[in-house]
Design a binder for these strands. Structure first.
Lengths: 154, 154
DNA sequence: TCAAAAGTCTACTAGTTCCATAGACTTTAT
DNA sequence: ATAAAGTCTATGGAACTAGTAGACTTTTGA
């Protein structure tokens, strides 16, 4: 049940972009190089990932001096599920329970396949989380954790 | 977030073994060939999978004429999570949230890593299902579905 | 106007994993 | 003794993963 490095890096980059937004300021434009340094990711690999995300409409970019990437929509309107699917494909653990990419799995009787019933539950549990967690939610949650750590360490 | 064929076939085989048990009868001994035919799985591939499951202590076997495989413990004491881990490794989508195989994931600050917080939730959701669903649970659920289909089709 | 700074695009590759298949071997019942 | 079953190890092709390389385009601003 593994998230690929591609997915991990892409999600981390998007979360970083959402986290560097400040209220009442324009969306910050951040360079690949800066993201790769802050998140410790190979910049050439990250480049491909951001390009994919851009072509999927989740990021916009500016070329040339002073250019970089920024979120295509407000952080509250981009969910982790959307990002995940662009980079790692369907969320479902097995194709016969996938909403986005259904395929029969080859069991003798799909309707009564026990594995399918359980994996359907697993799929729903994952989707519930990923599709209902926006980049904004993640940023807020991180801030909350940071604050609680700050308070308890005093 | 994919379950491998290995994991899928192994789970299906175990579910089949649990499903072919009858009350007040000794655990049925089933041959590889029969499982592979009923579940439409390459018998040589299945052979390796069952062997792995046997070496992990989840199956027992009998060699020779009239031999085959049978569950090493009652179906109520074998969970899908146990089987999954033997065949596909840790359940966690990312190593830094794995209980069984923790490794740092390389993010700058693990404690406040937003991705890690969310993936921890995902891990917990999956584990909740897989570790609390036994082979017996699956068999009962399948029977319930079969009954409800039988009733409504009359 | 030109050079530097940035993203864009395509190709390549070493390594790994996945899904098997093959075949020789061991154990057991009759 | 023989046939039926599981055991074990090796091999192979295909796909995928994580990354590297390099030539190209667009934009800014000196």
């Amino acid at each position: 049940m593994r998230l690929s490095k591609r997915g991990e890096y892409g999600l981390r980059a998007m979360i970083m972009l959402a986290g560097s937004a400040r209220e009442n300021e324009p969306l910050p434009v951040v360079q690949i190089k800066e993201i790769s340094q802050r998140e410790q990711i190979s910049s050439k690999f990250l480049e491909q990932i951001l390009l994919t995300l851009k072509n999927a409409g989740m990021l916009h970019s500016k070329m040339g001096v002073g250019g970089g990437y920024y979120l295509a929509r407000p952080a509250s309107e981009i969910t982790l599920g959307q990002i995940f699917r662009v980079l790692d494909g369907p969320v479902a653990p097995i194709k016969c329970v996938s909403q986005m990419a259904y395929e029969p799995c080859g069991c003798p009787d799909e309707q009564t396949c026990g594995l399918r019933l359980v994996m359907g539950d697993v799929r729903n549990a994952i989707v519930d989380i990923l599709d209902h967690t926006s980049l904004e939610d993640v940023a807020k949650r991180r801030e909350a954790v940071q604050q609680s750590l700050g308070l308890t360490s005093q």
